[in-house]
Design a protein around this nucleic acid. Structure first.
Lengths: 194, 194
DNA sequence: AAAAATATAGACAGGTCTGTCTAGTAGCGA
DNA sequence: TCGCTACTAGACAGACCTGTCTATATTTTT
């Protein structure tokens, strides 16, 4: 087999088009054409456009966590892990290749919470918030949930900047922003030899 | 005259529908029906849907600055003004009535920078960043541009949270987040009796 | 090699979209 | 009362949308 299986080619094409142009702006016919897959084949693998959108978001969610795990696994200290994550956010969000957050965009285009796109987006953000809370707790933050929420604002602000400003935006500040927020909760309260 | 002029009624209806459902999801026919205005009247006032979107965003931008000016005019000290702005962001973004940022959504739905919706959104965000920079400078921040960028991330993170999570989200943290960021740049460096 | 599953190409239905056209109505100043 | 302007109501064109159908070809499995 010289080419990937149809399902993978569809998802790959859908990912490129959805992340770049949005969900409503991209029609099934465009995905068909760009992927070179027959329409019936697409509808066999994904019963509807919403199902394709959901599959794309699930795939993107999995990729996000692989990215996060790749970053955190390179460090031991939770505080350093948090800083490394936001250095990664800074680098990625300010790069020209970044098109913003697919989950945020899904929530924007599908405001109905029952829509699978919004539901997956909400779940994703809840999971990110939870992970940041765990890391904040492990880093002995004075208020772990509060710090996680602070950091979450910075992260989503960076993704927003990527979409609105394009490459070279102030998302590059996310690392510094996170350091200031982390320091505010760990410097004073952390007496190593207490 | 018992009713507002047609142009105002169109803009009012468009504002409600665009902010709630998005731009592509709302058709001209829906705006016609909801506003009770004839289609030809709409196209007389706004030559195209894009022009209507642009007019809506301009109106929203003006309202945003009225809101900001209302907050800042109640305080004299720039640092206090910044804190008050983010208390306002916290309150608004976490309220159930908040549907997120119309400019962010415009950039999400119209990725092309030449699209009037994206262009106005970009300009708006640049203006906000500039205003935050001015206030940071006036507040004697160690790095005014850096602080403004930090705060910008927090603000856009709050709007994002509003859309994804709905009411009662972690955007309510924006005031505390901003205070931590402002303090990190003004506490140590500010010696009143130097 | 036969059979079964899978993919292709494209027509098609029914709906929605933006923007235009026509014809008629209401209000208002001269 | 006349004439001008603004608004209304709805048909309409042409394009695009999702999802289905048919008929054929290709691949895989038995």
């Amino acid at each position: 087999m010289t080419q990937p299986a149809p399902r993978e080619r569809i998802l790959q094409t859908a990912a490129a088009l959805f992340s770049k142009h949005g969900y409503r702006a991209v029609g099934i016919d465009t995905i068909i054409r760009e992927s070179g897959i027959a329409k019936m084949t697409l509808y066999k693998h994904f019963p509807s456009k919403d199902a394709l959108i959901a599959a794309y978001l699930e795939q993107t969610n999995a990729g996000f966590w692989r990215w996060i795990d790749g970053i955190t696994s390179a460090h031991d200290d939770p505080k350093t892990q948090l800083e490394a994550i936001f250095d990664g956010v800074a680098k990625l969000s300010s790069s020209p290749a970044c098109l913003g957050c697919s989950f945020t965009h899904a929530a924007a285009e599908f405001p109905d919470f029952d829509h699978p796109g919004h539901a997956i987006a909400l779940l994703h953000k809840q999971q990110v918030l939870e992970r940041l809370t765990q890391l904040s707790r492990a880093a002995h933050a004075a208020d772990p949930l509060g710090l996680a929420q602070d950091l979450m604002l910075a992260m989503d602000g960076a993704w927003s900047a990527a979409r609105v400003f394009g490459g070279g935006n102030h998302g590059s500040r996310a690392g510094a922003t996170a350091r200031a927020l982390i320091a505010a909760q760990t410097k004073a309260t952390n007496s190593p030899a207490a």
